[in-house]
């Protein structure tokens, strides 16, 4: 068993277990912390695929920025075990049904996909290195890349507009700016 394989299994188990704990945790703050662990495990997988750039960007953007905003919201809402609302039994059942349907669709979609031919090259591929990734993004995929940047720009403009709507001009500028993140 090579070291890569050991790491792969370790990271996979870690990722799946943490993902399960995200759902199972009673306290939403713990859920967020487990989710951060999931991102770390996924970054580890990226590293095994020699996609260093993706791995670190996953950590910077998701674990470092988005999850912090999640934590902000959850910590300020002060959701505790004690004041968790009682859920409807039927609502639980509906949730299980919806999740099962999603699983069914995913399995159906992936069943016919050719997994053998496109097996990931652990440790040898170099498309994830920053030079190759940059070249690919700015030559082959330049149109989708630019379109997605326009999408982000519009999201930023939207955030500023929403923030400016407040009556007091001082606070409006502040919230508009910070929601750009």
């Amino acid at each position: 068993m090579s070291i890569t394989l050991i790491l792969f299994w370790f990271l996979s188990v870690l990722a799946l277990f943490s993902a399960a704990m995200v759902v199972a945790s009673k306290n939403p703050v713990y859920s967020v912390l487990w989710l951060i662990l999931v991102f770390f495990a996924i970054s580890g997988h990226y590293l095994l695929l020699n996609a260093q750039f993706l791995a670190i960007v996953n950590i910077i953007v998701y674990a470092g920025a988005i999850m912090v905003l999640f934590l902000f919201v959850i910590m300020l809402m002060n959701l505790n075990k004690s004041n968790e609302p009682k859920r409807n039994k039927w609502l639980n059942l509906a949730g299980v049904l919806a999740g099962g349907c999603l699983l069914l669709v995913l399995v159906a979609a992936l069943k016919n996909a050719e997994t053998k031919a496109t097996l990931a090259e652990t440790g040898t591929g170099n498309i994830g290195l920053i030079e190759n990734l940059g070249k690919a993004l700015f030559t082959d995929y330049v149109v989708p890349f630019e379109i997605s940047s326009v999408l982000f720009l519009s999201a930023m403009v939207g955030a500023v507009v929403l923030g400016k709507k407040e009556s007091s001009p001082d606070t409006a500028g502040q919230s508009g700016k910070s929601s750009e993140k």
């Binding site: 670190i56 950590i59 910077i60 674990a63 470092g64 920025a65």
Partner: peptide, 11 residues
Amino acid sequence: LYIFGVVSLGV
């Protein structure tokens, strides 16, 4: 980027 990643985790 590694430095940035770790620094962002410092939060």
